[in-house]
Amino acid sequence: MTTLQTAFEKARADKRAALVGYLPAGFPTKDGAVAAATAMVEAGCDVIEIGLPYSDPLMDGPTIQDAVHRALSNGTRIADVMRTVEAVARSGAAVLVMTYWNPIDRYGAERFARDLANAGGRGTITPDLTPEEAGPWCELSAAANIDTVFLVAPSSPDERIQAVADCCTGFVYAASLMGVTGARASVGAAAEGLVARTRAHTGLPVCVGLGVGTGAQAAEVAGYADGVIVGSAFIRRLLDAPDEASGLKAVRELAAELAAGVRG
C-alpha cells in the first residue's frame, strides 16, 4: 500500500508536485464520500485527507462548515470515518485523517491511532494541536506507525516553524494565508516565502493548502512546494451539482485539472 513517503517519492520521480485532496467522511453521504474520494484518486490525487466531521470547526470557512454539517446530520461517526479511510486506501492513494483534536481525545488517542492504522490510514493532520500539546500524540502515532502532520502559518516565526517541523513526519502543512479554509481568487502571497522558511528547518516535503482551487493555482504552487492541497473546491463541486452522478463527474474533472496543474 502507498505510504506518504512513497507517494512523495513517486511525485518527485515524475518531477512534479504531489496532489493532495480533502473531503469529509459522510459528505455528501457516507457512500458518496467514498465514491468521490475514489474518483479524486483515479483522476490524479496522490494523497487523500479524509475529514473527521466535528461540530465546532473553528478554522473552516463556510464551504467545509456546510459539508461537515451535512455529514453530521447524516449520522457520520468515527467508525464511518475509519470505513471511508479503508475503502479509499484500496484505491491506491495514501490516506490521512484530518481532524480537530477533541474527537481523538474523546475516542482515546491510543485507540484512535491503532484503529486508523488497522484501517490502512497513514497518519493524521491535526490543525489545532500545537507542539506544546502534541508530544503524547506523536509518541502514540509513532508506536502505531502512522505519520503526524502539523501546520505552519505565515505568522509563524522561525522558532515556531522549527518546533512544528520537529513534530511532523510525512510532510509539513504550510497554510498559504492567514485565514480559514476556502477557495480564493488568488493563493496567498506569503505562501512561497513560508515554504522557503520551512525548508530551512526540515528535509520533509512541504505542502501548501488554503485557498487553492484551480489548475492554474496548482501549477503556481507546484513551482515552489512539494505538494498542493485542495479541499473546498472539491466540496463546492459536490454542493453545486444537481445530482450525485454530475457531482462525481465534476469532482473527477477538477482532480484532472489540478493533476495537470501540478505537472506544470
Binding site: 478554522m59 483534536w101 477533541n102 490543525p127 489545532d128 494541536l129 500545537t130 506544546e132 500539546e133 502539523f150 501546520l151 505552519v152 502559518a153 505565515p154 505568522s155 509563524s156 516565526p157 515556531r160 512544528v164 497554510a175 492567514m178
Partner: peptide, 12 residues
Amino acid sequence: GGRFVPEALIPA
C-alpha cells in the same frame, strides 16, 4: 487550560 488553536494564532 492550555492552547488548542491553529498555529496561525499562537504568535498573537
